[in-house]
Every structure is written in C-alpha cells, then in structure tokens.
C-alpha cells in the first residue's frame, strides 16, 4: 500500500464469489465444490480459482462431463451430510440437469416431510452482454423460479456476490445462484475483509434466513419505480440517472432474490411512486418480469397512475453477438418506457 490513508481496496465480482466459497470451505469441512473444469483450471470464468490448490482434490474437483450427474450426485452428497456447491459451466448447459433439479433437488424436502433437506448451491453463470454465442447467453431464471422448492438468488453488486453466496451456502434449502456473467469482471470499492465482518456480525439465524429474501432500494426517487434484478440493475441505474436530467426522479429496486420474493418491498416502492417499469434481460413472455408486473397490479392497483410497463428481451432465442445490443434492455428503451407513463403535463 503506497497510500497513507485507509482507502477501500477494489474487489471484482469474481473474487468476491471466489472468496465466499473459500471462506465457507474454511469454516465448514462439509462444503465441497465440483463441476466441469473447476479444479486445476479454476473454472472457465476462474470463479473457483485456487480452491483445489488450497483445499485439495477431495474438496474441489473436476467431474466427468455430465450435468445430470453433477446435480444428481450433489443430491446424494447433500442427503449424506455434505453442503455441495456445483457449477454449471453456462446457463444453457444446465439443461441436462433439469430432471434432477426439478424432480429431486426441488422436491426432496417436501417428499420426505422435511426429514431430508438438501443444502446445496447450483451456481449458474447467466445472461448476455459478453459477446457470447448460442447456448452461452440464456437468462433461464424463470424455469427455476417457477419450480416450488428451489430458492433463486441473483446478486447485482460485488458486496452481494460475497454476502448472498455465503447466505446461499448456509441455507438449508437448495439455492440456484445466478451469476450475471457480464458482471464477473466489474469492480467496486469493497473490502473483502469488511464484507467478511458484515457476514460474521449477522446473527446465525439472520445469516441463514435474513438478508437473502430482501430486495434493496439502490437509488431513491419519487416519481417512478424501476424494478430489476441481476445484470439489469446496472442498466436501470443508468436509466435513472439519465431520467434525472429530464426531471424525472426514479427509484430503483434490486429484487436480489426471486425466491423468496420480497413483495413488501415491491409494494412499498410502487405505492410511493405510483408508476412502475420492470426491467429484465430474459424474454418477457411468461417471465419473472411478468410475475412482478402481475403482483404490482394485484397489490398496488389503486396507487397506480399509469399501466405497469416491462422492458425485457424480445421473445426470441438469444441473438448473435453482433445483434445482442438490439435485444438487451438498454437505457434508451427504459427511457422510452418512462415517457409512456401518462405524465400529467
């Protein structure tokens, strides 16, 4: 350190995730990490970098190429006292594991009347904006959120990358942990040791069930609520900034967790502003954005000054890298939606 003042160091989203895993592995021998290329290579995104070296091949290891095998053996490990963290290499390559995830990961606790819970985390790098080709850019959160028994988290900040992953590992329920891959190399002035302290300072109970389900107001405003999660939060914040120049004060809500779903936070912001735009990368048809919109209508109808609008991806297979900018929600499209909210003047 060349500076004399105690400044916060810069931390990437990727290293926050990596540290969350190594801290959890350090604290608890039953935490194991496995998947494709997660060992020697450290994962294709290097999120598991160094874990094998530090904890050995019995705690972090490569598996044969078989996603159902990865998810299914994680079920068995969790039945037998472990807390597995598994990595799906890319969003669309998790599909071979869906039978295991839908029929067993999600239902084991229910089927056994709570006697067998599966404390496992399924990490999935998701979403676009990185110039990825077909099968590498899906936003598949709705499939999982639709399945009762799964929790679905998606952090949008470096601090949440650390804190929410640790909460996911601590949770007695299975968590599908969606990592926006376009944020992997984003940086924030966050100190890992401070994040660790925040995590430690939370009571054990609230570490397990507290913060995870709560949405966060990441920008306060009066006129309209922009509701978002994961990779779209950043875009929503930029749009709010641009709107401010036009005299519109936008509040931005980061849902953080899709299951559990923080309906109260949603109602609070919409009742406060009376207008809402929901932003998400995934196709809009039958999506998480649809669900958010429906709940606003059910709970906030009498507070609404205009219809609730959605800004989402088109209802198409994810387009090629050259065309993805036309598909993804961007600041202009959000501003266009804001314009349509039946402002009085």
């Amino acid at each position: 350190m060349s500076t004399t003042t105690a400044t916060k160091t810069t931390t990437t989203f990727a290293s926050a995730l990596n540290t969350a895993m190594s801290d959890a592995m350090e604290a608890d021998n039953s935490v194991v990490v496995f998947g494709e290329d997660v060992g020697t290579l450290g994962g294709v995104f290097r999120i598991t970098d160094g874990l094998t070296k530090r904890f050995g091949t019995s705690r972090c290891f490569d598996t044969p190429l078989a996603e159902s095998g990865i998810a299914g053996t994680a079920v068995g490990m969790a039945i037998n006292g472990m807390r597995p963290i598994i990595e799906m290499q890319f969003d669309a390559f998790a599909y071979p594991a869906l039978e295991q995830i839908f029929s067993h990961v999600a239902k084991m606790a229910n089927r056994t009347r709570g006697r067998v819970r599966l404390p496992m985390v399924i990490r999935i790098p998701y979403g676009g904006g990185v110039g990825g080709v077909e099968h590498h850019c899906d936003s598949s959160e709705a499939y999982y959120a639709h399945t009762a028994g799964l929790k679905v988290f998606t952090p949008a900040t470096v601090a949440d990358a650390y804190l929410m992953l640790r909460e996911a590992i601590d949770t007695e329920d299975p968590v599908v942990f969606f990592e926006p891959k376009k944020l992997y190399w984003s940086k924030a002035a966050e100190d890992l040791s401070t994040l660790r302290e925040i995590y430690e300072s939370r009571a054990e109970d609230s570490r397990k069930i507290g913060a995870q389900g709560q949405a966060a107001v990441v920008r306060e405003g009066q006129d309209v609520s922009i509701i978002s999660y994961g990779p779209s939060v950043e875009t929503a914040l930029k749009a709010a900034e641009a709107a401010a120049e036009d005299g519109i004060s936008a509040e931005v809500l980061d849902m953080r967790s899709i299951v559990p779903f923080d309906e109260d936070a949603l109602v609070r912001t919409v009742e406060k502003t009376g207008r809402a735009v929901v932003v998400a990368e995934a196709q809009g048809f039958v999506s998480v954005a649809s669900e958010i919109t429906a709940r606003i209508q059910e709970r906030c109808f009498h507070s609404l000054a205009s219809p609730v609008l959605r800004v989402t991806g088109f209802d198409i297979p994810y387009p090629s890298p050259k065309l993805e900018e036309h598909h993804l929600p961007d600041v202009d499209r959000i501003l266009d939606a804001l314009d349509e909210l039946q402002w009085e003047d």
């Binding site: 299914g72 053996t73 079920v75 068995g76 490990m77 039945i79 472990m82």
Partner: peptide, 17 residues
C-alpha cells in the same frame, strides 16, 4: 435411474469422510 446418481453421491460423501 435418477436414484442411481443419489447413490453415487451418498457413497462419495461417505468416502470423503
């Protein structure tokens, strides 16, 4: 055959311990 993978995971966990 979904249960065959659970069996492998249970055995793997036991082996690790």
């Amino acid at each position: 055959t979904t249960q065959l993978l659970h069996a492998v995971g249970v055995a793997h966990a036991a082996k690790l311990r």
